[in-house]
């Protein structure tokens, strides 16, 4: 049915469709960032990521990013996947998601250069994938149809400037300046069994919903999501707090007066259950949010839609009615508008 759809056709669904079959796992919280794992028994292993299948990545001209999928599965290129390479070649990123058929080769001429004033093309090869910093993703998506390799330079410059990094239009300067912090995010958040997605919060504000087709797919893209995409937002939060080290104490703290190990044990369990409920309630609050899907294209029997709502903007990939992939970063307006609700110490 999707093949018959035309570009710009729109459909309305709710966020619950994106999270169908998932339940919230235990909240993980370190510093400014919190992650609610989305776990599911649904595991669609027909799809692989460029990381899973060791896809060959290359550029053929400025603004054209190519992917060679030599696997026997359909490859979903995550929304805003990018490549920073150690070559005399211009780093590039996708302005949207992509789908490459089994044993297929696909070139996207809507890609963006993320390294101004650097010439050269990326040689065909397997490289570490990143996903654009959260602050750039909304801009990239808005410009997804533009065939202009310079389209993100100004946005990168503003982003760098905001974080005190010099380097107009060079994303790699940001990555270099905050390498240590970004690496730590990968170390601090662990994937849990059956995890296929996550709701990411910074300072208790929801900043994104991510969903993958399978656990293996999720494992392969999670380091890129937590490191560059959402990690960059945590760094911005730290900057906004005057570069203060984040409070490493738990959000809900134990009371000072505890009389016995039995009491301590029950308090830890009670707080954990309270945190679980908080995670579930965060998910529940999102379920009814309407999402407008704007049809983009169909490849290998799956369709790509751009999803926008009051609070999120991203893309989903569907196989018939079933959403197999979704990446929905919160809009910058929503990130700014949410009030931080730091919990009080636990008390009965």
């Amino acid at each position: 049915m999707f093949r018959k759809r035309k570009k710009n056709t729109s459909t309305r669904i709710e966020v619950r469709e994106v999270l169908r079959g998932c339940e919230a796992g235990r909240l993980q919280s370190v510093g400014y960032m919190q992650v609610i794992p989305l776990v599911s028994d649904l595991n669609d292993d027909r799809f692989v990521s460029p990381v899973q299948c060791d896809a060959d990545v290359y550029t053929t001209s400025y603004g054209t990013l190519g992917f060679r999928n030599s696997s026997d599965s359909v490859m979903i290129v995550p929304c805003h996947a990018g490549y920073v390479v150690k070559q005399h070649a211009q780093d590039h990123a996708m302005a949207h998601a992509g789908v490459v058929a089994t044993a297929g080769d696909r070139r996207y001429d809507t890609a963006a250069c993320i390294q101004a004033s650097q010439g050269g093309f990326i040689k065909k090869g397997s490289y570490r994938m990143l996903i654009l910093p959260h602050a750039l993703r909304e801009h990239a998506l808005q410009k997804r149809g533009e065939k202009n390799y310079q389209k993100l330079w100004d946005d990168i410059s503003v982003f760098n400037q905001r974080l005190g990094v010099t380097g107009q239009g060079h994303l790699e300067y940001f990555l270099k300046a905050f390498k240590k912090e970004l690496d730590e995010f990968v170390a601090e958040f662990e994937c849990v069994p059956r995890q296929v997605g996550a709701i990411v919060l910074i300072d208790d504000r929801v900043v994104g919903i991510e969903r993958a087709p399978s656990h293996e797919y999720w494992l392969s893209i999670w380091p890129s999501l937590i490191r560059e995409c959402y990690g960059s937002l945590a760094i911005e939060a730290a900057k906004a707090n005057g570069d203060r080290a984040p409070d490493r104490s738990p959000t809900v703290q134990l009371p000072v007066e505890i009389a016995s190990l039995e009491e301590l044990e029950s308090l830890i369990a009670e707080i954990a259950s309270q945190e679980d409920e908080r995670a579930r309630s965060t998910v529940r609050e999102l379920l009814d949010e309407p999402l407008d899907l704007q049809y983009e294209e169909t490849v290998a029997d799956v369709s790509i839609d751009t999803a926008t709502s009051e609070h999120f903007t991203g893309q989903v990939i569907r196989d018939g009615d079933k959403i197999v992939y979704a990446s929905l970063p919160a809009t910058s307006a929503f990130v700014k508008s949410q009030a931080r609700t730091r919990a009080e110490p636990f008390a009965i």
């Binding site: 993980q28 738990p250 301590l264 830890i268």
Partner: peptide, 22 residues
């Protein structure tokens, strides 16, 4: 040494244990 569910709970618990007198 990487704790995340949540970070800091172990340290808080050690402090509570000491306050209990153990």
């Amino acid at each position: 040494g990487y704790e995340n569910a949540p970070a800091g709970r172990f340290g808080e618990t050690v402090a509570a244990v000491r306050r209990i007198g153990i």
